[in-house]
Design a protein around this nucleic acid. Structure first.
Length: 224
DNA sequence: CTTTGGATCGTCT
DNA sequence: GACGATCCAAAGG
């Protein structure tokens, strides 16, 4: 009994990013003929979150974050990468969920074509910029409505419930707001951006040096 | 497995 | 000018 995938209603997205984020796990992102299941997300709580792009108020870049819930907020970073978020705060407020990793369900060949022929399956979409490249998401899709699918991108529910007990850690790649555990993921997924054992640390710039914190004997966990 | 450094440019101070 | 909600290749254990 294959439940017909249904597009999520606007009301699904309305709420605090920290509440909506774990609910997005196992939902299916549809981009053209490609489909992928969300397996890892992070919440960015707008005005009260120093790690959020919206922390210092609206700008030209983050304008979409202040729009209605259910929009795709796409930003360009590091001079070469795109990352995708789903907005969830009421209009006028900024709150969004970063899509950090997805599991390809359909359109494998198209994704590999965009990512590179030599790229392994699990490396196609296991990172926020990787999934954008695989799904051809760039700034041209900033502001796309996931509910009306006005630009061919939508979010659906195929009947797979979010994990009852999602994995949870601090967010990855940020230098402030690291005290909050606002990253959620599907336990056991092979498409996470980090191994589950890995503990996120504050982003250390290549120039900054961790004095004294030399590598300890790591966990010798045989992950697989 | 882990760590390190380079790439590259829009955005904000 | 400085800094990224990153990724990749290379080198070391």
């Amino acid at each position: 009994m294959t439940a017909a995938p249904r597009t999520l209603p606007r009301s699904f997205f309305v709420g605090d990013a920290r509440d909506v984020a774990p609910l997005l796990l196992n939902k299916v992102l549809v981009r053209g003929r490609a489909r992928a299941r969300i397996v890892e997300v992070e919440a960015y709580a707008g005005e009260v979150d120093p790690a959020s792009h919206a922390y210092r108020g609206p700008t030209a870049r983050n304008a979409t974050m202040f729009g209605r819930p259910g929009l795709l907020y796409v930003y360009f970073t590091y001079g070469m990468h795109h990352c995708a978020n789903v907005t969830c705060a009421p209009e006028g407020h900024a709150s969004a969920v970063l899509l950090r990793a997805v599991e390809p369900l359909a359109g494998w060949s198209t994704m590999r074509q965009r990512r590179g022929d030599h790229v392994a399956d699990r490396d196609l979409t296991n990172g926020p910029a990787k999934l954008c490249e695989a799904l051809a998401i760039d700034r041209g899709l900033d502001g796309a409505d996931l509910v009306t699918a006005d630009r061919g991108v939508r979010l659906t529910d195929d009947g797979t419930a979010p994990p009852a007990t999602p994995g949870r850690t601090a967010r990855i790649g940020i230098s402030t707001g690291t005290e909050h555990e606002w990253r959620w993921f599907v336990p056991g997924s092979r498409f996470l951006s980090r191994s589950e054992a890995h503990v996120p640390r504050p982003a250390d710039r290549t120039r900054a040096r961790t004095s004294g914190t030399s590598g300890t004997s790591g966990a010798s966990g045989a992950s697989r």
